[in-house]
Simulated assay, not measured.
Amino acid sequence: MGKVVLVTGVARRLGGRFVRRIQREPEVDRVIGVDAVRPEHHLGGADFVQADIRQSTIAKVLAEHAVDTVVHMDITGTALGTRGSRSTVKETNVIGTMQLLGACQKAPAVTRLVVKSSTSVYGSAPRDPAVFSENTPPKSLPSGGFAKDSVEVEGYVRGFARRRPDVAVSVLRFANILGPCADSPLADYFSLPVLPTVFGYDPRLQFVHEDDVMEVLRIACFEARRGTLNSGTFNIAGDGVLLLSQTARRLGRPTVPVLLPAVTWVGSALRSVGMTDFSPEQIRLLTHGRVVETTQMRETLGFQPKYTTADAFADFARSRAPGLIPPQSLARTVDRVADAVSGPRSEERT
Rank of each mutant, 00 (worst) to 15 (best):
I177D: 03
F174D: 01
S184Y: 01
S117E: 03
A161E: 07
F132E: 00
M214A: 11
A147V: 12
S124L: 09
R173Y: 01
A224S: 14
P138N: 06
V213T: 04
A147I: 11
R225E: 01
L100A: 05
A161T: 06
D183Y: 09
G179W: 02
L186S: 10
Y201T: 15
G155E: 09
C104V: 04
P165N: 07
D211N: 13
P126Q: 07
D211P: 15
A107I: 07
V157D: 10
V167Y: 07
T197H: 00
P138L: 05
K148A: 14
T92I: 11
F199D: 03
V110N: 06
R112V: 09
A224F: 09
R225H: 02
P108R: 00
K106T: 14
T88A: 11
C221F: 03
E210K: 14
L217P: 09
S124Y: 09
V157Y: 12
K148T: 15
S124Q: 07
E210D: 14
Y189W: 07
S140L: 13
G102D: 02
K116D: 03
C221G: 06
I219Y: 01
Y201K: 06
L101D: 08
A168G: 08
E152K: 14
V153Y: 12
L195M: 10
F132M: 02
P108G: 02
D202A: 08
V216G: 05
A224K: 06
N176R: 00
P138R: 01
Y189D: 03
